[in-house]
Design a protein around this nucleic acid. Structure first.
Length: 424
RNA sequence: GCGGUCGUGGUGAAGUUGGUUAACACUCUGGAUUGUGGCUCCAGCAUUCGUGGGUUCGAGUCCCAUCGAUCGCCCCA
């Protein structure tokens, strides 16, 4: 049997790392609830058609999805939105008052080459806001993500925003680009020649061809936007101004998913620590997704944030609070496992105290080492004498004060000691 | 999916042009006259160098494969 290890791009999470994960998740849950969002969990695997829709050109769905089942009809979710919309329609959540707001913190799967800030199994925390389209909601959603990152203490971030117009605008624009670049294909780099077929909008964002004259003169999205779409976008921006959220309108910003319409946004890190994966969260509005799942015409907007990337940055910017774990008391046992010791521990634990007890035959000194390691606020020492008298030696680590207490008043005494510590 | 770099114990790591017992530090375990620690001192802890194969009298050190990590491309969270 060879030594087994975790699968490429999938990682074990434990100890202080898991702790940090849970801290950020807890904060996110709380913050989402401030905005009236409710948590949802959907299955990690779904019918392939949930993720892969007709005409979908994205790599994420076509190349990077883990396909499951003997008949290859299921897939591991590469993103959260599709599954949630499926659930939204399946359970007719649209009967609730709009907007209906959902958030999630779940694992996603994408078969890419692992890299810093990019794993095959990773965690996304995100939101979906379903209901009639309204500019104020777009701004509110961006605000939720932006302020959450600020709440974590992160500073080196930038908000990029753009509009794709409605579904028709986007389609027309894509066609126009295909035609335009098709005529000028010789001027493009090799990558862009490929992009012409896969994702023409991406050409606009090419680093190689950036200064290329052909690129500079390419058709602009503006020309394909309806007046309505333009006004909508303006309105979104005005709300962001009011909220004092700094943003940069990035005409070339295109998201990888095909379902986006109107507002799209991306928050990137400007910190070097994020390496080649600088996007912290991205999202946008989608007008047709609910209908795709046979639900009533409903718009939606959401974003997803990479939790692992968030933590890389928090580490780099030094904003992670290392919370020191402490326990209320450590029970030192000098008797070699007399049942009395276990009974005392049990009584205290049932009264809400965090208690650890010595279970091995160890010298007093070794046991005191555990006291320090576990960050115990108090120590309880039990030897033959204490058992005989049904008492316990209780010591306050901070003040060094030590008293003998009867078993029946131990809970109160400990409460006093531990309680005092908290007040100070 | 493509290209570059790397892979030594729980951790950080040293290991010369291949040559007997794999440095050092932290952690951990035990001890320093038998009921009071966090300091100090002493001792112990990798049959083995990601894994498999090859070259060689001899490989952690060279070659191949494989797995993994990492950086860039691509893509995206």
């Amino acid at each position: 049997m060879p030594k087994l290890q975790s699968i490429k791009g999938a990682y074990d999470l434990f100890g202080s790392n898991l702790n940090k994960f849970n801290q950020v998740k807890a904060l996110f849950r709380q913050y989402c609830e401030n905005y009236g969002y409710h948590e949802i969990e959907t299955p990690v695997f779904e019918d392939l058609r949930v993720f892969k829709r007709e005409g979908d050109t994205s790599d994420m769905v076509n190349k990077e999805m883990y396909v499951l089942g003997n008949d290859h009809k299921m897939g591991l979710r590469p993103e959260g939105t599709a599954g949630i919309i499926r659930a939204y329609v399946e359970h007719k959540m649209y009967v609730n008052e709009a907007p209906y707001k959902l958030f999630y913190a779940e694992k996603m799967y994408r078969k890419e080459r692992p890299q810093k800030g990019r794993q095959r199994e990773f965690t996304q925390i995100g939101v979906e806001n379903l209901g009639p389209k309204k500019a104020i909601i777009d701004a509110e959603t961006i605000a939720l993500g932006y302020y959450f990152i600020k709440l974590l203490g992160l500073n080196d971030i930038e908000v990029l925003i753009n509009t794709l117009g409605d579904y028709e605008s986007r389609k027309n624009y894509t066609e126009a680009l295909k035609a335009y670049f098709g005529h000028n294909i010789e001027c493009l780099c090799d990558d862009c020649k490929k992009r012409l077929h896969t994702n023409p909008l991406r050409i606009l964002d090419c680093k190689v061809d950036n200064q290329n004259d052909v690129l500079q003169k390419a058709p602009k999205i503006d020309e394909y936007l309806t007046a309505e779409a333009k006004n909508y976008f303006k309105e979104v921006l005005s709300y962001l101004d009011i909220l004092e959220i700094p943003y940069k309108v990035e005409q070339r910003l295109v998201r990888g998913l095909d379902y986006y319409t109107d507002t799209v946004f991306e928050v990137v890190s400007t910190n070097d620590a994020s390496g080649a994966q600088s996007t912290l969260f991205g999202g946008g509005r989608y007008d047709n997704l609910v209908e795709y799942f046979e639900g009533p015409a409903t718009s939606g907007i959401g974003f997803a944030m990479g939790l692992e990337r968030l933590l890389i940055l928090m580490e780099a910017e030094g904003v992670i609070s290392e919370d020191t774990e402490e326990i209320d008391t450590y029970i030192i046992d000098l008797t070699n496992s007399n049942p009395y010791v276990l009974k005392v521990a049990s009584i205290l634990r049932n009264n809400g105290f965090k208690v650890e007890l010595n279970v091995y035959d160890r010298k007093l000194k070794a046991q005191f080492k555990s006291v320090a390691r576990l960050n115990a606020k108090t120590v309880i020492i039990i030897g033959e004498d204490e058992i005989k008298e049904a008492t316990v030696m209780l010591k306050n680590i901070e003040t060094q004060e030590q008293i003998k207490v009867n078993l029946d008043e131990l809970v109160d005494k400990l409460e006093e000691m531990v309680g005092n510590d908290i007040d100070e």
